[in-house]
């Protein structure tokens, strides 16, 4: 057992583990979706190697800072692993005036042990604006939301590029992804009404392709095209907002030729009628969940501090810092 521990504590094994990690890190950059399989083996080898070294290597016991640095590294590794297991990474589009709906979230990554509490998040999207500099360079994003607390109270929050919000451990941040959305009212033959929203592609990035399909409650798929009266000015500052925007919507389907209507106007569809109610904006939020981040940060800083102390102790020896002897020591090459 002691022999095995000493073998596992070998510095040569450390070198092999680090070399494998370098190769695999490059592989991960080529195939990012396969990060975990590439990293598990070398990181496991390094973790076991380090644990064994902490047990059998006297050098660690004699150098407290070096020991702390490596324990910190182990802690970082543990936090990253635990973070991967409980994490959630996703995105959602929320229309002005609408409530967040967890069913509309697109998950990009969910850890095996993620406690799914996204349904408990409650907020309503308020007005939003995105400012652009001349040349359509995106400047600041302002988004107002109303966040429902667990005690039932509601708090308004102004969020933007530098300020997200957190609810039930999920952090929501605004993204570059945002665009127009048209609210449509559906009346069926029996007089029942339902409200829907058609989100158009990100604007102004896809200003040339403002179309999207919407399936009516009767099952007919229609294509909506947003037709803005004015083009986005490219050589002066501009603000993306939903107020005072002149627009029309072209609606077409397999059974209908395109008909262009404005706000408040209606057109017939199979099994009912569609009325354009209003033009809004939608905001694309990034959602991430990782409750271990503060601990990961603490471990990383602890490790870094210990490394700095170790280096300071190591190079405090006068030899390294001594002024080179006058015998041509300062001679330049």
């Amino acid at each position: 057992m002691i022999l095995l521990t000493k073998t596992m504590a070998s510095l040569k094994l450390t070198l092999v583990g680090l070399a494998a990690l370098i190769v695999n890190a490059f592989a991960v950059s080529q195939w990012p979706d396969t990060a975990i399989p590439w990293l598990v083996l070398p990181l496991s080898v390094l973790a076991i190697n380090l644990l064994a070294a902490l047990i059998v290597r006297h050098a660690f016991r004699q150098q407290a800072a070096l020991l702390l640095f490596h324990i910190g590294l182990l802690a970082v590794l543990l936090m990253v692993t635990a973070g991967v297991l409980v994490r959630f990474d996703g995105s959602v589009e929320v229309v002005e005036g609408a409530a967040f709906d967890a069913a509309g979230v697109t998950a990009r990554g969910t850890g095996w042990l993620h406690p799914n509490r996204l349904q408990q998040v409650r907020f309503t999207q308020g007005p939003m604006e995105v400012h652009y500099l001349s040349g359509l360079q995106r400047d600041t994003t302002h988004s107002r939301i109303t966040l429902a607390r667990t005690d039932g109270s509601e708090v308004p929050r102004d969020i933007g590029d530098r300020q997200g919000f957190t609810s039930h451990g999920y952090r929501f941040t605004t993204t570059f992804n945002k665009g127009y959305s048209v609210l449509v009212l559906w009346h069926d033959m029996d007089g029942r009404q339902s409200l829907g929203a058609v989100n158009f592609p990100s604007f102004p990035e896809f200003d040339w392709k403002q179309t999207n399909d919407w399936t009516t409650p009767s099952g007919e798929t229609l294509t909506f095209e947003l037709k803005l009266a004015e083009r986005v000015p490219e050589d002066e500052p501009w603000t993306l907002g939903s107020r005072e925007v002149s627009y029309e919507v072209g609606i077409s389907g397999s059974a209908h030729a395109e008909k262009t209507i404005g706000p408040g106007q209606s057109t017939a569809a199979t099994g009912g009628e569609i009325t354009i109610v209003d033009l809004r904006l939608w905001m694309g939020y990034r959602i991430d969940y990782n409750p271990l981040l503060p601990w990961l940060l603490t471990a990383a800083f602890l490790s870094l501090g210990a490394l700095a102390v170790h280096m300071a102790q190591k190079f405090r020896a006068p030899r390294a810092m001594k002024v080179v002897a006058a015998s041509g020591g300062e001679q330049a090459a």
């Binding site: 680090l18 990690l21 890190a25 991960v28 950059s29 990060a35 941040t173 990034r286 959602i287 991430d288």
Partner: peptide, 26 residues
């Protein structure tokens, strides 16, 4: 960007540089 690590090219090569220094020191 709402994520602390994403293996983009710069992050990857920076991490590889760090690993190379660690490898050399060891």
């Amino acid at each position: 960007w709402g994520r602390y690590w994403a293996w983009d090219s710069l992050e990857t090569w920076t991490f590889i540089t760090w690993l190379c220094i660690a490898l050399l020191l060891h």
